[in-house]
């Protein structure tokens, strides 16, 4: 038993262990510094519910063999469009939220399908092509946010300016519609029940999916495309499915993220969003070619807790806000660790 624990610890990796230790140390420091522990925990719970589905969106990509989906912004854009359409027509509350999810999902299917077809043509370079497809789409949408004929005054610049605002408040639409659903407080800790439930439900559905014939075909392709082919699976087709699934989940994920955040952020905001999310998954113990639901949940919890605690604690000690710097170092460091740690698979 001890041996097993030790083995799991080694598999978890030194870099990740350091990060977990770091979180624990920060936590102790926070207690020593008499900080509002309840508030910190509430914050991290909110962030876990906010980011969870976005992290989950990476899972089908990794399992389906397209690698870490650096093209996540594609799905995020679909989600943003889904929200904006509903908001333009002043659909508020539950109906607004559901409509945003449905439009986001529908667009996600289309965009993911095209993306998957493209990735099939660039096998071996999915991560790099994905990154720049993401960048290109985000910067192209910058043009469209300016040009598209939105007219709802809550969305567009107030005076004379053209196009959509950079940040649009959801206050009149569905702020924290999930976070506040059945939310309760215990020991002053606010539990964003709805968001967490939504995250857990999606994890459950995705894990069920990977037990179905369809899901198992996708996973087999990712594990060994030649094996899949020998068993009558068309690897190109299953890869497209995994891209679709990933994109749809990202689209839904950003809607959930924004309802909790309370704002829709446009223009360059989604540009670098994929990187911290990928870092989340990797911190959870995933590798470039292997990821599980456990990695998703664990990674989200560790990374988001780190971010919420690091901010006040380190600021209190150093006297300057080091959290943004720490976030850059940790999230990119862990990605780099994963990229260089595995021997290169050249196509």
């Amino acid at each position: 038993m001890q041996k097993k624990i030790l083995k799991q610890f080694i598999e978890f990796g030194i870099a990740r262990s350091i990060i977990v230790l770091f979180v624990i140390v920060l936590f102790i420091l926070a207690i020593l510094k008499d900080m509002q522990i309840a508030e910190l925990i509430s914050d991290s719970l909110a962030r876990i519910g906010r980011n969870g589905i976005l992290v989950l969106a990476l899972l089908p990509g990794v399992r389906g063999g397209i690698g870490l989906n650096f093209g996540l912004p594609l799905g995020i854009i679909c989600g943003l469009i889904g929200m904006l359409v509903g908001m333009e027509f002043d659909w508020t509350g539950l109906s607004g939220f559901v409509s945003a999810l449905s439009i986001a999902g529908g667009l996600g299917v289309l965009a993911g399908w095209g993306y998957g077809v493209l990735l099939n043509k660039v096998k071996g370079q999915e991560m790099m092509v994905g990154t720049y497809v993401g960048f290109s789409i985000v910067s192209f949408m910058c043009l469209l946010w300016l040009l598209l004929p939105f007219s709802n005054p809550k969305l567009i610049w107030a005076l004379g300016g053209k196009g959509l605002r950079v940040t649009i408040s959801l206050a009149d639409y569905y702020p924290k519609i999930l976070d506040d659903f059945l939310s309760f407080s215990i020991f002053n800790v606010t539990i964003p029940f709805g968001s967490l439930l939504f995250f857990v439900l999606f994890c459950f559905f995705v894990s069920l999916f990977f037990r179905s014939r369809w899901g198992r075909a996708i996973a087999a392709t990712g594990a060994n495309a030649q094996f899949a082919k020998a068993n009558g699976i068309n690897p190109n087709q299953t890869r497209v499915w995994s891209a679709v699934l990933s994109t749809v989940l990202a689209a839904i994920g950003i809607v959930v993220y924004n309802q909790s955040f309370g704002f829709v952020q446009l223009y360059t905001a989604p540009l670098l969003m994929a990187f911290p999310i990928i870092a989340c998954l990797l911190i959870g113990g995933a590798e470039v070619g292997r990821a599980t639901i456990t990695h998703v949940i664990l990674g989200t919890v560790i990374f988001q807790t780190l971010l919420t605690i690091a901010l006040p604690v380190t600021s209190a000690f150093i006297g300057g806000d080091i959290s943004e710097t720490a976030r850059i170092i940790i999230s990119n460091g862990i990605i780099l660790y994963a990229l260089a740690g595995v021997k290169g698979k050249t196509a």
């Binding site: 991560m127 976030r327 850059i328 990119n332 990229l339 050249t346």
Partner: peptide
């Protein structure tokens, strides 16, 4: 990281930016 030098280079850039900030900002 042979075969994925470009994505590694890109992330190295981001990562080093953090280190650079750490050095000069703090």
């Amino acid at each position: 990281a042979k075969g994925r030098e470009m994505v590694t280079g890109l992330i190295t850039g981001f990562f080093s930016n953090g280190i650079y900030q750490l050095i000069f900002l703090f």
